[in-house]
Design a protein around this nucleic acid. Structure first.
Lengths: 176, 176
DNA sequence: TTCTACAGACCGGCGCGTCGGTTTGTGGCG
DNA sequence: CGCCACAAACCGACGCGCCGGTCTGTAGAA
């Protein structure tokens, strides 16, 4: 594992352990570096749309686009990072939790705005997280669908329907 | 890991490797033993209901009840089994795939019966799988919700809505 | 010469799997 | 019944590879 990183980065054990105290540290650093990028990208996409339903679509769109654009990185974070054991999964689960709360926040706002009916947004947030995660993981390990973005429309209507949001047919947005 | 099994089963290395050629074998044996039980239980629940929407509810209900009733076993299969590496994840993923196809089959039947609109049932099946899995895993590792069955109504309406099935308010079925 | 950044040989624990040996069960035989 | 022979089931110390982490050395900059 560490040796893989060494080889891939064309470095050495000494170099690695000069920069990181241990193995998990590089994962945590990676998470700390990427999570803000991802969340800000999603937030910006959300801010660029007026109504909550369109915001949800934009958020999913940018998420899938980012994953598709950085497949290797995504695989590391969503597939390879799981099951390292030794209390490292906890950190991973905490990150998942923060994502779930992130989703939940916007769901709550959508409820407050009257865009969707009152409901247990925590359960919904985790269900959404799971649905998206499973879809992406499937794409990562089975290579299906060939292009992750292909599932976007289906997944979008699925998620929107699931909270009772009426599907407003918007024009297809470019992949940007 | 093997030593844990040894200790828990009050056995020995020799005894273990007399019955199983290697470590993964016991997991595969466990899967081979449990998956049929689970699927038949779900199938029976489905068969006992007339219309597709109620079938979906009954299926989810029995699934959650079984998971709740066998928490330790569920944790082994859904949490501890992941990330054993060495081409073992493949087997796990294949099992997930068969489950997804199982779900997809019933979705296709629901489409054929006109209970839900035509849609990409494969994507839906995987999304459902992910949503349920994430919910159960959350319950397993964070202990929330305290009782897994508590999420049933919410999750049920969420999943049904997601495929555009109109929620038919049925009387609460006993936990059986 | 001192400090930073790195190289890579080496160490040690952990965990899977093995292997020689012991116990337990079982059928045959006088 | 008592005994033997053989096999099935089980035991646990050891081997050994893997992998995370350390330690010594060193090239180049200041």
């Amino acid at each position: 594992m560490v040796d893989d990183i060494i080889r891939a980065s064309d470095s050495s054990k000494g170099g690695f352990y000069f920069h990181f105290p241990n193995k998990q540290a590089i994962f945590l650093a990676l998470i700390d570096a990427l999570v803000p990028k991802l969340t800000t990208a999603v937030e910006r996409a959300i801010a660029s749309e007026p109504d909550p339903v369109a915001q949800m679509g934009a958020a999913l769109r940018t998420l899938l686009d980012l994953f598709a654009k950085h497949r290797k990185l995504t695989k590391i974070l969503l597939v390879e990072a799981v099951g390292l054991g030794h209390g490292f999964d906890d950190q991973l689960m905490r990150t998942r939790g923060s994502f779930a709360r992130f989703i939940q926040g916007y769901l709550d706002r959508a409820v407050a705005a009257g865009a969707i009916a009152e409901q247990d947004t925590e359960i919904v947030a985790w269900a959404w997280l799971g649905a998206i995660n499973e879809t992406v993981v499937r794409w990562l390990v089975m290579g299906e669908p060939k292009r992750l973005e292909d599932v976007y429309p289906q997944l979008r209507t699925l998620l929107l329907r699931s909270v009772g949001a009426d599907e407003t047919p918007t024009k297809a947005s470019p992949i940007q």
